[in-house]
Computed example of a mutant assay.
Amino acid sequence: MRKALVIVTAVLLVAFVLQFVFAAVGAFTKPAGEGAYALHSVTGMAVIPVLTLLTALLAVLAKAPGRLVGLAVLPLGLVILQALIAMLAEASTDASGTSTAFGLTIGGLHALNGIIAVHVVVGVHRAARKLADPALAGVALVTVREGEPA
């Protein structure tokens, strides 16, 4: 289970990296139609939450410490916050639908929250690797064969 946890946290980290790429694709798509951010939306609202829940489940099954289980769940809360930030930024336009300074500031928080989420996932991945590798956790496994000095 611990090796599976390491693998899933690595996949989750890749999904977050791709999320930034998909945001850039949306930002640079010309003309920017409704589908410009489709990959960004699907990854953020479906792929990342599923991987986060799978990470938390594997952390529990791997008998990870409570702190690691809590950190494994945290990206889900940050994704929910991302959606709320995006909705608030979209709603903060003037009467003609033009962005306002307030809306753009809130939009900037969307990027900042994404960076924070990546840092959390990096921490979860590091902790999972440490949990999976007894040498990193300070436990040395020694194999002694019959006839050899211990």
Results as ranks from 00 to 15, higher is better:
residue 1 M to S: 09
residue 4 A to I: 00
residue 5 L to A: 09
residue 6 V to L: 10
residue 7 I to L: 14
residue 18 L to H: 04
residue 19 Q to C: 02
residue 20 F to N: 05
residue 21 V to Y: 14
residue 22 F to M: 09
residue 23 A to L: 10
residue 24 A to P: 01
residue 25 V to D: 10
residue 25 V to K: 04
residue 26 G to H: 11
residue 29 T to S: 13
residue 33 G to T: 11
residue 35 G to M: 08
residue 36 A to Q: 09
residue 37 Y to K: 06
residue 38 A to K: 12
residue 38 A to C: 00
residue 42 V to R: 04
residue 47 V to E: 01
residue 47 V to D: 02
residue 48 I to V: 09
residue 50 V to N: 02
residue 50 V to E: 01
residue 50 V to A: 06
residue 51 L to W: 05
residue 52 T to D: 01
residue 53 L to G: 11
residue 58 L to C: 06
residue 60 V to Q: 05
residue 60 V to N: 03
residue 60 V to C: 03
residue 60 V to W: 07
residue 62 A to W: 04
residue 62 A to R: 04
residue 63 K to R: 15
residue 64 A to E: 10
residue 67 R to Y: 12
residue 70 G to L: 03
residue 70 G to M: 02
residue 72 A to M: 03
residue 72 A to C: 06
residue 76 L to Y: 01
residue 78 L to F: 02
residue 86 A to Q: 10
residue 87 M to C: 00
residue 90 E to A: 13
residue 90 E to Y: 01
residue 93 T to D: 07
residue 94 D to G: 09
residue 94 D to M: 13
residue 98 T to Q: 13
residue 99 S to I: 08
residue 101 A to D: 13
residue 102 F to T: 10
residue 106 I to H: 03
residue 107 G to K: 12
residue 110 H to N: 02
residue 111 A to M: 06
residue 114 G to F: 06
residue 118 V to L: 14
residue 118 V to F: 04
residue 119 H to Y: 11
residue 127 A to R: 15
residue 130 K to N: 09
residue 132 A to M: 05
residue 135 A to E: 15
residue 136 L to G: 06
residue 137 A to D: 15
residue 138 G to E: 12
residue 140 A to P: 00
residue 141 L to R: 14
residue 142 V to S: 08
residue 142 V to R: 14
residue 145 R to I: 03
residue 148 E to T: 12
residue 148 E to G: 02
